[in-house]
Amino acid sequence: MLHQPAAPVGKDPAQQYKMRLGVWMVIAYSLFYGGFVAINLLKPLLMEKTVLAGLNLATVYGFALIIVALLQALVYDAMCRAQEHKLSDQKIAGEVR
């Protein structure tokens, strides 16, 4: 009983789907983040090349890491919600039958 959450949490049928999706999302972002680290370690001079609107690669890549994190988070939330609704509708339909 000591492990119960502060607020009761029901069973989540979408749990497995969300975990799988989460892992793929982390892998994708890790590759993007790893690319940034790798360029700095292997070709650091590339980071000072101007790539967009007078901005260098370091700035563009740094901002992109922040913006992509947010975009991925929004996509993840949308996919999780869609799956939660789908499974919840299926459950209701099953109960009605």
Partner: peptide
């Protein structure tokens, strides 16, 4: 925060108390 959101957020909420 990517690791926190995608891997840790919901399981932590499900498993923990305080």
């Amino acid at each position: 925060w990517i690791v926190a959101l995608f891997v840790v957020a919901e399981p932590m909420k499900r498993l923990g108390k305080y």
